[in-house]
Structure formats: structure tokens, C-alpha cells
Amino acid sequence: MTKVKYIRVSTIEQNTSRQEINSNEFSKIYIEKASGAIKFEERVEGAKLLNDIEKGNITEIHIASLDRLGRSILNLLTMIEYFNSKSINLFVENIGMYSMINGKPNPTFKMIASVLGNVAEMERTNMLERQRAGIELAKLQGKYKGRLYGSRMTDEEFLKKYKKVEVELRNGESLRRAAKLGGVSLGVAQRVKRLM
């Protein structure tokens, strides 16, 4: 194994086909469905990829865009440094650039990675800020139905409360369909699936 591809989407429902268009070019493809906020090494497929690197099975990694590695600038730059230390060339498809040239780190790549990494991190911060602002507005308008302080359910209570969603999922329904049939949000259906 030499050339591999790492694909990541944030949620279970998201489609990876856009990132898989050139998959026949690679010895192995790692498909991850996890938030970019989770450190690369703490993700299931990320850990498998790192394990394959340690075994000496990889020389080149392709990703669709830098934010597939992560949305934390620190984690992103740490991963790039790690790949460089192992002489693994990282190719980012949307900018058409390699992290190394003739076995040496590409300084232009590092500069662009820093800029794009900061943009990705800022994007995530802004998204969370908009979410918080939306919740505050909903509270002011009396529309927010968030959880009361100290009212967190146990996993068993949660599954019992959303038994209908669990039944639909066990019957083979998709997450969206099970959420609709159970009259709950997609987030609730995802948690039910995780707890099953």
C-alpha cells in the first residue's frame, strides 16, 4: 500500500460520493463520519490511518480539502508536521498542492495550510456563536424548549422515552425517516442509534 485517501463528513447522513470520485486511484480509502472538531488521532478511521503509517504502509495521502483533516488549526498543523516527519506526502485536491517537494516540506503549502486552517477554525467559531445567539433569541421570545438544569436523562431513560424511534431504526428505517415517524429531531434519532 502506498497512495491512500482520507474522506471525512461530519454526520452519518452526509454523502461521501463527491469525495470518492477518484477512489480507484488509491490502494485504500478511509471513510470517516465524525466532526472535524474531534482530533484526527481520536477518530476511528484517523487512528487506523495512523496505525498504517506506523507499519510503513503509506507514502502518500490525498484529501479533498484541508478541513477534512480537522477544523482546529493546532490539530491541523500538528498532523501536517507528523506526516512530514514520516516522509508522507499530503496532497490537497481543492488547492492542487503537495505538502512536500523532493522529500522536503513545501514552505508555500505550510503557509496556505495555516491560512486555510485559520479560516476553517474561524468558520466553526462563527457557527457556534450564531447557534448560541439563536438560542438566546428563542429564549427571549419564549420559544426555547431546552433541557432544564439538572434534568439530564440516563441512557436507559432516553431510549425508553424515544422507543418509537428505536423500533423504526431496528426495522431498517433511515435516521431521517425514523426521526420523522417518531416526531423527533434528527439529533435525537442519532443519539438513539448511538445508544442502541
Rank of each mutant, 00 (worst) to 15 (best):
G142L: 00
G142R: 01
E157Y: 05
A113C: 04
E157N: 09
E136R: 15
A120K: 05
R132H: 07
V165Y: 06
Q131L: 09
R152V: 11
N118C: 14
L159S: 03
E156C: 01
E166S: 15
G117T: 08
L140E: 15
V119C: 07
E121F: 00
K143P: 00
N118S: 15
M127K: 08
M153A: 12
Y162C: 00
T125D: 13
F109C: 10
F109M: 12
V115E: 05
L148S: 09
M127C: 00
L148N: 04
S114M: 07
L137Y: 14
G146L: 04
V165P: 01
P107R: 05
K164I: 10
V115F: 01
A138C: 13
E166C: 10
T154Q: 08
G142A: 05
R124L: 02
M122W: 12
R147Q: 14
L148A: 11
A133S: 05
V119S: 08
A113R: 04
T154V: 08
K163F: 03
Y162K: 04
V115K: 00
E129T: 12
S151D: 06
I135L: 01
T108P: 00
E166T: 01
G117C: 05
K139S: 01
A133G: 04
E156G: 01
M127W: 07
N118L: 07
L116V: 11
A120G: 03
K161D: 10
G150A: 14
M122C: 09
Y149C: 03
R124F: 03
L137M: 08
I135M: 01
K143T: 05
M127G: 00
E157L: 08
N126R: 08
I135Q: 09
I112E: 11
